[in-house]
Simulated scan of single mutants.
Amino acid sequence: MAAPAFQAALLHPRHWATWLGVASVWLLSWLPVPLQAALGAGLGRAIGHLLRSRRDVVRTNLRIAFPQADAPQIERLTGQHFADLGRGVFETALAWFAPDWRLRHRGEVTGIENLRAAMADGSGVLLLTGHFTTLELGARFLCLAGVRFHAMYRPYNNAVMDFLMHRWREGRSGLPALPRDDLRRLVRALRDGRPIWYAPDQALDRRMSVYAPFFGVPVRTITATARLSQMGRAKVVPYFPERHGSRYRVRILPALEDFPLGDEIADATRINHVVEQGIALAPTQYFWVHKRYKGLPPDMAAVYGRREA
């Protein structure tokens, strides 16, 4: 799927606010990286105190994921998470706009031999990860390491952002972005032996999900991972980005063995466990502001105060 062509209509005054916002992010990306880190962390902590309802969501998620932590520990983790969220805003700006020379020395990719081994027989690969605050920058470091992959693409209602996001994803990853709901194209790419970036840790469609444990609590989990792997005759290779101070590491793990099994619940449980392993590498850098536990079985009490779909 080719990136959309630039059209003069994108310069219409109704889009000026979007262009101004993009220009502001571009300017922020040129600040010294240590200053970006400090500003981002401070901004994130401030927002965490202002958005009390969202802070409660983070606390609830952390209590479920780390039941051994006491109240002060949960509060520290919550504060650090919002600091990581704030830093993630600036890291996204770097991922989108920073030239290669500015990033190359700041990160490393380990385990790339695992990806090469998985693709050695011509198999396609689902590059499986989770929604981390370092997600965009982690993908950029994969590109810097020479990994070419299809990014899944969701159309935006904002025409300018639709144009730019498609261009950014395709320009950095080296292969065309693929619509996430176009099963035929996804399967074809996998059968052609290509990698596809994939994050299955947010269940968006109840019709394609089952209840599987995530940190011990059964939660709605999409089944598409096993389906894509089977239909595309593809392997699943997990990778996880993590920040260490002002440096970054992307770990590529070996391909999952004996996957899929053909049991939807067992396969979904396996994927959730893999994501849990990635979270353990950088616990506060996971996207805990997402209401991951809103999709609980009907016989379980809601954890966010009221039951949500």
Rank of each mutant, 00 (worst) to 15 (best):
P4S: 04
F6P: 14
Q7E: 15
Q7D: 11
A8T: 10
A9I: 10
L10F: 13
P13H: 00
W16S: 02
W16F: 08
A17S: 12
A23G: 14
L27Y: 03
L28V: 11
L31A: 10
V33M: 00
V33L: 03
V33P: 00
L35S: 08
L35F: 08
G40V: 04
G42N: 14
R45V: 04
A46Q: 11
I47A: 15
H49W: 14
H49Y: 07
R55S: 09
R59G: 09
N61E: 00
L62K: 08
R63L: 03
F66I: 04
A69K: 15
A71Y: 07
A71C: 10
P72I: 01
T78V: 12
G79P: 13
H81A: 08
D84T: 05
G88N: 06
V89T: 07
F90N: 05
T92A: 00
A95Q: 02
A98E: 12
P99Y: 02
H105L: 00
H105E: 04
R106V: 01
G107F: 03
V109R: 09
G111E: 11
I112S: 09
E113L: 05
N114D: 00
G122Q: 11
G124P: 14
G124T: 10
L126M: 14
F132G: 12
T134Q: 12
L135Y: 12
G138T: 08
G138W: 08
A139T: 09
L142F: 07
L142N: 13
R148M: 08
F149G: 05
H150K: 09
Y153F: 15
Y153Q: 12
R154T: 04
Y156V: 00
Y156R: 15
A159Y: 04
V160S: 14
M161F: 06
L164D: 00
L164C: 07
H166W: 02
H166G: 09
R167I: 00
R167N: 01
R169A: 07
R169F: 06
E170K: 09
G171F: 03
R172P: 05
R172I: 02
D182G: 04
L183T: 09
L183Y: 08
L183K: 13
R184D: 01
R184F: 02
V187D: 11
R188Y: 00
L190W: 04
R191N: 10
D192S: 13
A199D: 02
A199Q: 11
D201Y: 02
A203M: 07
D205A: 11
M208I: 02
V210H: 09
P213H: 02
F214H: 15
G216Y: 12
T221G: 10
T223Q: 11
T225E: 05
R227M: 13
L228Y: 10
Q230C: 00
M231H: 14
R233H: 13
K235E: 02
V237C: 05
Y239I: 03
S246T: 06
S246P: 01
V250A: 12
R251C: 02
A255P: 14
L256V: 09
L256K: 11
D258E: 14
D258N: 15
P260I: 01
G262S: 06
D263A: 07
A266G: 05
A266Y: 01
A266W: 03
A266P: 14
D267E: 09
A268D: 07
V275F: 06
V275Q: 14
A282Q: 04
A282Y: 01
T284N: 01
Q285K: 10
W288P: 15
V289H: 03
K291E: 09
K291M: 05
R292M: 03
L296M: 07
L296Q: 06
P297T: 04
A301D: 13
R306K: 14
R307D: 03
